[in-house]
Nucleic acid binder design. Structure first.
Lengths: 141, 141
DNA sequence: TTTGTTGTAATCATCTTGATTACATCTATA
DNA sequence: TATAGATGTAATCAAGATGATTACAACAAA
């Protein structure tokens, strides 16, 4: 199992919006060329990012831009925007047998631990902003 | 996306082995009744756990048992045993355009952050043992 | 030798992902 | 106001993963 690539595609998209903000019209076609996927994938990605209030997209004339300050957008925001994980990260088997002492209590015993693990992952993503990534990117150029 | 339920099934299976170690012949059928899945699923699960050195299974006569001390088996061991995640947790889009400054560096900029997030998740799983879960379970009975 | 089990292959339906085509809609501008 | 170039979105599609299930050979203890 893997978190779908639409998450890294979305991050890549936002980096393109940051990097080319003033020098290019950042159309779905232009972004798609950098990411190397179909432009429709980018449009869907932008649609999610727009719904999350991260970008604005100009229908008709074309081009997208970041709405927030890069230091105010975390990887977690992006992760949520594109529904990388729906609800619980760990898929729990649906119907443990309540007539068995183990089956009856497995949820109570395990749920908290799994939520903690998921929270640790998400906390890490909350600690990284687009500004951090742009700094690293510029340093490499 | 979700981590497949075979992980929680595997944990449940191990808890059954712990709990009923001395009072029941823990066959795939018996375990399946507690987890509420097909016995073949349990056999496959046990096969993974056996390959990871966590359990031994008696072919023919039937029954499985935990090989290690419950305090020496972490959720991370189980997670790895059943291949909950193959390699990288985050699926990265395959071919960013190297002719684009963003596409060329997106891996360098992002990979470390994603690995750190995955590591945080796995560290959390390493901090929980079957003994911890059994303690919580017994407390509820 | 019989009985109850495990090991494993083979199918199957279902779901998700990501790619792609198609086309209606929109907007700046010529 | 017509047009050129974009976006928004529905509809398909192939590929892969998951979990359920059937079937049956191999095995081990009584």
């Amino acid at each position: 199992m893997q978190i779908p690539s639409r998450f890294t595609v979305a991050v890549h998209t936002l980096l393109v919006l940051c990097y080319f903000a003033d020098t290019q019209k950042t159309t779905s076609e232009f972004i798609a060329a950098s990411v190397n996927v179909n432009p429709v994938i980018i449009r869907k990605t932008l649609s999610c990012l727009k719904a999350a209030g991260l970008v604005s997209v100009k229908a008709g004339s074309g081009g997208a831009r970041l709405v927030r300050d890069p230091s105010e957008v975390t990887l977690f925001d992006v992760y949520r925007a594109v529904d990388s994980v729906e609800g619980a990260l760990f898929h729990f088997h649906e119907h443990p047998n309540p007539a068995c002492p183990v089956g009856k209590n497995v949820h109570a015993v395990l749920d908290g631990r799994l939520e903690a693990a998921q929270a640790a992952l998400e906390r890490e993503l909350q600690g990284v902003t687009l500004a951090d990534l742009m700094r690293d990117l510029n340093q490499r150029l």
